[in-house]
Design a protein around this nucleic acid. Structure first.
Lengths: 362, 362
DNA sequence: TGCGCGATTGTAATCGTTGACATTGACTGA
DNA sequence: TCAGTCAATGTCAACGATTACAATCGCGCA
């Protein structure tokens, strides 16, 4: 049959069918006002009948015009935080008639440049980069050929590009400070890839609070490099079985937060706990968490991209969104040794329902 | 500065720099063996020095070759099930040197055709469609121009395309059957969008089991159209407050599964419960679930796409992957009225934490 | 010495779309 | 009536990469 033909209808076909030149077809589509109404009708009829749509590659080739597509590079499709960022960017771009396409590095820093290159080569109107890989040289202007680049949640590192950041360090500092004020002295901090900017940013908040309270950092309470669920589970189990287990736990990314939460439920622990980022259940279960509104993060990234598309000469900007500590109880628990004083803000009354912005799907 | 130039390096530039013709540059890149070693060196050096990479649009324009990019249309980036499908497709495609790009309809069926069109126009090598929208006419061959299309988790509807399906109906039948055998007679079924194929497929399994056991279906126990978390929460609350509440609950998609799970934990319910699809916590909490291995689903879709790319004339195929009922305890609970008999089966080693339900922080 | 062959490389047409420029024809006002 | 104007449409080169075909070169062999 003809299903495999991939034989496309071109302007020439339409022009012949309508008895006009290709220029008139193009004009009818691009600038209808300059074409006589009768001709316009004839052309449109042919377009409809043949099912013509312009080949965007040829169009792009001729006039290096914006493609109407914005690319986003994520660390992984199943990274739900980054998925919400993508959703936020998508919504804002769509409001402006642009389409978002996303690609995943699958947490492999080596694939960032490849994916960025693919998107730049396909002439995305802008490129949003979320992974937290090390090397960023491939985003230097000589490689991006003027494609606007927005970095999400990681710094520019001398690059002349727009950036959207969050104040994770301040929020972790605030959470740590609160735990220290409650009397905690052994506060574990669990983080992801040791070489990532984000882990460093968050740990710096932890250390700042410790320093302010003149509490020396204990090396053995800082665990980094946790990525796989088994590692996370092993780490938390080992921590809690020590002779001197931590009295409070800071989980410094979403995966770790989920792992610690599962451990709390399964093993019925009541250690003080502050999560970073939320999952389906954390709000409903009274987990104090540092939240970052990923949807807004993505939206802002899209806004920056749109502005740079409009005015490529504008000075790159850095937008900072607040990371907020939401107190729901688990982060307000005192250490076991402390007298049973009033728990500030804690308690079952603060158990919220999860009514987040999400829509359930299948 | 020159950062906004978007002035790309072309074959011509490379050719001039290397002192050869554009044809030789192309040959060096496409078919190095026919170029003299010395010339090849000179060209490669120029390519490196200028940072040249071929414009895929121009390449595509000339020779309608496969683009090396496969498009995937999802209902939403934050749909974690579909994200895992994407991850599976990504892995398989990558093994074969192809790149996956995904776009989201944000659960708006009207955007399926738009997105499909964008991807087809950009000459993706294949198109994977996941949303469960109604209309599918836009995938007729006259609109896809031979782009291989694979439907994931929804039927072909007379279309001549590859399909990957799961046996949700059979698994739901099996789960319902088991609950009925345990003595349950009031089994609630909660489903998503009423007009979706998937909800219908799953409910048909529920009804088949009821019919086999000669248990009449109770309209008031079947709730459809649940999409937002609030709706899900309201529905489960209302159900359980009835004079005759259900003794068992079937959640027929992931969002609903999460909602019911949260309700169980918060309200310490111990009603029999079978979820469809899993979230972070369901395995650890002993929730019986119908699982579909989304990663494998995506991988199979990619395999079909790859085969059709290789041989566009092959007859479209339908691959069916099993939906499995994993027994972890919550689905093996008897109704309250039943005597405390042994729980049949219980999944032998598969019962991880049947007692994990209803735990709290005190 | 001269012909022919194979190994390299160059030339130019092509893909589909666009837009600057040229052309056509009708109509206006002097 | 005729130059001038304007609206409508046609012509053709260009975008960048590719490739069929042509051209060139060196060398062996008659």
């Amino acid at each position: 049959m003809s299903s495999g033909d991939r034989q496309r209808v071109t302007v020439t076909d339409v022009a012949r069918a309508a008895g006009v030149s290709t220029a008139t077809v193009t004009r009818t589509l691009q600038n209808p006002d300059v074409v006589k109404a009768a001709t316009r009708e004839r052309v449109m009829e042919a377009v409809r009948r043949l099912g013509y749509s312009p080949n965007p590659m040829a169009r792009n080739l001729r006039h290096g015009s914006p493609s109407g597509v914005v690319g986003l590079v994520t660390a992984g499709f199943t990274n739900i935080f980054q998925a919400w960022v993508a959703a936020g960017a998508e919504a804002e771009l769509r409001r402006n008639g642009l389409q978002l396409l996303i690609g995943s590095t699958d947490d492999d820093p080596a694939r960032e440049p490849e994916l960025a290159r693919i998107m730049i080569d396909r002439r995305v109107s802008a490129l949003l980069m979320m992974p937290d890989g090390g090397e960023r040289d491939y985003l230097r202007p000589e490689y991006t050929y003027g494609t606007p680049v927005v970095l999400v949640g990681r710094p520019a590192g001398g690059l002349d590009v727009d950036v959207v950041m969050t104040t994770d360090d301040q929020a972790v500092d605030e959470a740590t400070d609160q735990l220290l004020s409650l009397g905690h002295r052994r506060i574990a901090a669990l983080a992801g890839r040791a070489d990532s900017f984000r882990a460093a940013q968050r740990l710096s908040g932890y250390r700042a609070a410790l320093a302010r309270h003149a509490v020396p950092e204990r090396q053995e309470l800082v665990v980094t490099g946790l990525t796989r669920p088994q590692e996370i589970n092993a780490a938390i189990t080992e921590l809690m079985q020590r002779p001197e287990p931590p009295t409070a736990v800071l989980a410094l990314n979403l995966g770790i937060s989920s792992g610690v939460l599962l451990d709390r439920i399964v093993n019925r622990r009541n250690t003080a706990f502050v999560a970073l980022d939320e999952n389906d259940l954390s709000a409903g279960l009274g987990i104090s968490a540092i939240t970052r509104d990923p949807f807004e993060l993505g939206r802002q990234a899209a806004v920056l991209a749109l502005e740079r598309i409009t005015d490529p000469t504008a000075r790159p900007r850095t937008v900072t969104l607040p990371s907020l500590l939401v107190r729901r109880g688990s982060g307000e628990l005192p250490p076991p040794s402390a007298a049973a004083g009033g728990v500030p803000g804690g308690g079952a009354g603060e158990v919220y329902r999860a009514d987040g912005c999400g829509v359930a799907r299948d």
